[in-house]
């Protein structure tokens, strides 16, 4: 009797042991809403993705709420942007989470900037804090070029496949599908941006370098010329003068920027202002990575189409 019970218990335990991992979803924590969306697309039904920084929140300044560590504690994989975008809060959260699966350098953490071939905005020459809160490793907002989003999808798929080999093919197939979808929309998005692609812009924060590089838009100035530091009235006046000298200029700001300053500056320049989402969820209409580019390109196109006559007078 005792032997029979033991055998039943062992069989049950083995069944649980075999069935457990197969049924369990890969738990992924993503720092940014763009990464969460991409990870969810790639992970599909085989992954459960949680998000640390909500879309409307400027990712430079996410409050490191201890409650966020609950998501990190459960995670098998952390996908993060890197290039020091999360430097102000992710180390604190990781330390509080005490999840040894996410240790630096391990398989459980993935810096997605590794997927990006061409990091823009790497400071050259003298680099110090007199230039503001600069990112010494380069501009971290590479997800605003959709081609980089596709590359990040592939990178995430490979790591998911490594952690969960049973679903490796599914992860890779979904990443390939995402890449195909993004590639298929690139021309459409450029068309939506319309006149903006032929006009110079003044940005609020150096957030849009990758977006502008992809669309071929020239940035001739920044209202916030030193990242993380309020622009001085003198500098804003200089930028306004710069904008007035170019009749075709338009201004770009993120939904979380200091819009009062951006609005006043664009008014005084007589230039249209495009307020666009800097992340998935930063605007209700930008509820996915692809939808975000619909909104971004659509708004750039609308803002610049409204005064297309001014564009015709480009010096």
């Amino acid at each position: 009797m005792r032997i029979r019970t033991t055998i039943i218990l062992l069989a049950a335990a083995c069944a649980m042991g075999l069935a457990g991992p197969a049924a369990a979803k890969l738990k992924v924590a993503a720092t940014l809403s763009d990464l969460a969306w991409i990870a969810a697309e790639v992970g599909g039904e085989d992954a459960e993705v949680s998000l640390l920084c909500p879309g409307p929140q400027d990712p430079h300044y996410l409050p490191a709420k201890p409650s966020l560590t609950r998501k990190l504690r459960k995670a098998d994989l952390l996908v993060y942007n890197g290039l020091e975008l999360e430097v102000g809060w992710l180390p604190v959260l990781l330390r509080t989470a005490r999840n040894n699966r996410l240790k630096p350098g391990g398989r459980g953490e993935l810096e997605c900037s590794l997927a990006v071939q061409n990091i823009l905005g790497i400071p050259t020459g003298r680099t110090d804090r007199s230039q503001g809160d600069i990112h010494p490793l380069g501009n971290p907002h590479y997800l605003l070029d959709p081609r980089n989003g596709a590359a990040v999808g592939t990178l995430i798929a490979e790591r998911m496949a490594e952690l969960d080999p049973a679903h490796a093919d599914a992860y890779r197939a979904r990443a390939a599908s995402l890449r195909q979808e993004i590639d298929g929309r690139l021309a459409l998005w450029r068309d939506m941006a319309g006149a903006a692609t032929a006009r110079p812009t003044i940005v609020y924060h150096q957030h849009w370098e990758y977006l502008l590089n992809w669309l071929g838009i020239e940035a001739i100035g920044a209202i916030e010329h030193r990242p993380g530091i309020n622009p001085s009235p003198g500098h804003v006046s200089e930028v306004i003068a710069l904008g007035r000298a170019r009749a075709d200029v338009f201004v770009v700001a993120a939904t979380w920027d200091k819009l009062d300053i951006a609005e006043k500056a664009s008014e005084r320049m007589g230039a249209p202002l495009a307020v666009i989402p800097g992340a998935v969820g930063a605007d209700p209409a930008a509820d996915g990575y692809l939808a975000m580019f619909d909104v971004i390109c659509g708004r750039l196109g609308q803002a610049t189409a409204s005064d297309a006559a001014a564009a015709e007078g480009t010096p």
Partner: peptide, 10 residues
Amino acid sequence: TIGSHPAHSY
């Protein structure tokens, strides 16, 4: 503060 970026304590 000079040096590395400070953490945003909550």
